[in-house]
């Protein structure tokens, strides 16, 4: 199992999680479906988790992996509240289109 640490450099994980994070940002920017936007936020959180876990494994330090655990805790709570807000929004506007939510602009 530790072969990975010997043969794969940490740079690989840094670039992989950077790419995943940017794909998540792109998804938040180009999609209008609020559920997909929330999913892209999850993707961004996961890319950061991967980088935390990689650095933790390469340094032999358990704190990084515990941080990942706490990020997962916060993400789970966030998804529960976010999806409740989405259901509420669908009940009021009959749509999950984020561009309908521009009341603060006017």
């Amino acid at each position: 199992m530790t072969e990975v640490l010997k043969h794969v450099s940490i740079d690989y994980y840094i670039y992989l999680s950077t790419i995943l994070f940017c794909i998540g940002v792109m998804g938040v920017l180009i999609r209008r479906n609020a559920i997909i936007v929330l999913m892209c936020v999850e993707l961004m959180l996961n890319s950061v988790n991967l980088l935390f876990a990689a650095f933790s494994a390469y340094r032999g330090d358990a704190n990084g992996q515990l941080f990942v655990f706490f990020i997962m805790v916060v993400a789970a709570a966030e998804v529960a509240v976010g999806l409740a807000i989405l259901v509420m929004m669908y009940r009021n506007t009959k749509s999950v289109d984020v561009s309908l939510l521009d009341k603060l602009k006017h």
């Binding site: 992996q65 655990f69 993400a75 789970a76």
Partner: peptide, 22 residues
């Protein structure tokens, strides 16, 4: 990736919490 990094706890939590629950 987690299991290749030997982070077994994170592997289980990722499968149960993310792929399962969320």
């Amino acid at each position: 990736q987690y299991i290749l990094l030997n982070a077994q706890f994170l592997f289980i939590v990722q499968v149960i919490v993310y792929s399962g629950a969320i």
